[in-house]
C-alpha cells in the first residue's frame, strides 16, 4: 500500500524550493510554500478549508470536501487516509496520522473539519 503514496512524502525526502534552497520534507513551513509560489510567477497558494470528510467506497480512502480560496469554491478529492496535507499553523496532517507515520515516518497531526490546508491554483485561471 505504501507504493500508492508519492515518494516525496517519505521523511528525509529532499525538496527544492523555488529559490533553489533544499529542505527535508519534515522541515517545510508554510512560509516556504508561500515564498516559492511568489517566486514561481504562475502558481498561487490558496487557503483550502476542510468542510467534510466522508468515507469512500474505495478501501483505505476518504473523500475530502474543501472550500477553496476567496471564492470558497467547493472541491472534492479522494485520497488515501494516510495522504498528508499541509495545514496552516499545524504542518503535515492526514486523516490517519498513525498510518502516515507508520508508512512514511513523517510526523503528522490529525486532519479535521475546519483545518485550513495549503493548495495551489494557476494564476492564469483567475
Amino acid at each position: 500500500p505504501s507504493s500508492a503514496l508519492p515518494p516525496y512524502f517519505m521523511k528525509g525526502s529532499i525538496i527544492q524550493l523555488a529559490d533553489g534552497e533544499l529542505k527535508r520534507v519534515e522541515d517545510l513551513r508554510a512560509e516556504d510554500f508561500l515564498q516559492s509560489a511568489d517566486l514561481s510567477g504562475e502558481l498561487k497558494i490558496d487557503s483550502s478549508t476542510v468542510e467534510r470528510i466522508d468515507s469512500s467506497r474505495t478501501p483505505d480512502a476518504v473523500i475530502i470536501q474543501f472550500s477553496v480560496g476567496e471564492h470558497k469554491t467547493q472541491v472534492c478529492v479522494e485520497v488515501l487516509v494516510e495522504y498528508p496535507f499541509f495545514v496552516f499553523g499545524q504542518g503535515w496532517s492526514s486523516c490517519c496520522p498513525h498510518r502516515t507515520t507508520q508508512l512514511l515516518a513523517l510526523s503528522c497531526a490529525r486532519l479535521s473539519v475546519g483545518d485550513v490546508c495549503i493548495s495551489l491554483t494557476l494564476k492564469s485561471l483567475r
Binding site: P6, P7, Y8, F9, S13, I14, I15, Q16, L17, A18, L22, V25, L28, D32, F33, S36, A37, S40, L43, I45, D46, S48, F66, V68, G69, H71, T73, V75, V77, F85, F86, C117, I118, S119, L120, T121, L122, L125
Partner: peptide, 19 residues
C-alpha cells in the same frame, strides 16, 4: 539522492465549474 520540486507536495485544487 532524488530532489523533488516543492509544488509536488501541494494539492492542485483547481476550481471546476459544475454549472
Amino acid at each position: 539522492v532524488p530532489v523533488f520540486p516543492w509544488h509536488s507536495l501541494v494539492p492542485f485544487l483547481a476550481p471546476t465549474q459544475s454549472d
